[in-house]
Design a protein around this nucleic acid. Sequence first.
DNA 1: ATAATTGCAAACAATTTGCATTCAG
DNA 2: CTGAATGCAAATTGTTTGCAATTAT
Lengths: 126, 126
Amino acid sequence: MRMTPQRQLVLDALLQLEQATPEQVCQHVQRATPSVNITTIYRTLELLEDLGIVRHTHLGHGAPNYSVHEHQHVHLVCHRCDKVVEAPRDVMDDLRGTLRVRFGFALDASHLALSGLCADCQEATE
Amino acid sequence: MRMTPQRQLVLDALLQLEQATPEQVCQHVQRATPSVNITTIYRTLELLEDLGIVRHTHLGHGAPNYSVHEHQHVHLVCHRCDKVVEAPRDVMDDLRGTLRVRFGFALDASHLALSGLCADCQEATE
DNA sequence: ATAATTGCAAACAATTTGCATTCAG
DNA sequence: CTGAATGCAAATTGTTTGCAATTAT
């Protein structure tokens, strides 16, 4: 594969934004280079993911969240205000062990978010 | 709110199917009553969810999975073969405690699936 | 030349909206 | 009669596909 300018732009955008939806990556890239098509964003994100350079997380509804592979964390999404809190991956270590033993399931802690209520919304709900 | 025939059909479908996407609920309902529109399925699912009667889970990509509130479990989705394993909610109890203490986050264990590799796919991958 | 890459338009899936019609109290 | 509920068509969002034009080797 060739590291084309478009691909570099996508990767740079992702490094700058730390994490973003394809749409957001597209907007960021197009600020610098408006000619880049969103199709290319999608294709590049898929390619970079196949190469293990980036990964994506589903936060629930809507578009997935891409990030460079290094920035891995567990996403805690508040389903009331949609705020996303990031937790270090190791909070899931025990659960990973349990799931392996009880279900033979190898948990990938950061691919999907966890849903719940953030501290603020718990107060607001009382 | 009135328990209209359409709404009853949606709820019945969900009870029979145990869990299903809006699309699947729609097909099930339309087998008995073809005139019911998918818009009504969506509206009814939203309504039932507001009432706390049903809930939905995101398995990752694609349509969410609805179920009646009683049948709660954690979904373990294999991101290789897309198989869904169900685990009892209590496997997340420790994690729930940790997240509450460390992040003030009240985990809703069943709203989002967990992603990883199922036992079969782990073998296949080696 | 030839294979990979891109842009563009169109297709697609899942969902939502606007609005006119129907229905129950 | 009046508001709630429904159906239908159209709009919206996120994503994918087909294909022709472009680019690097």
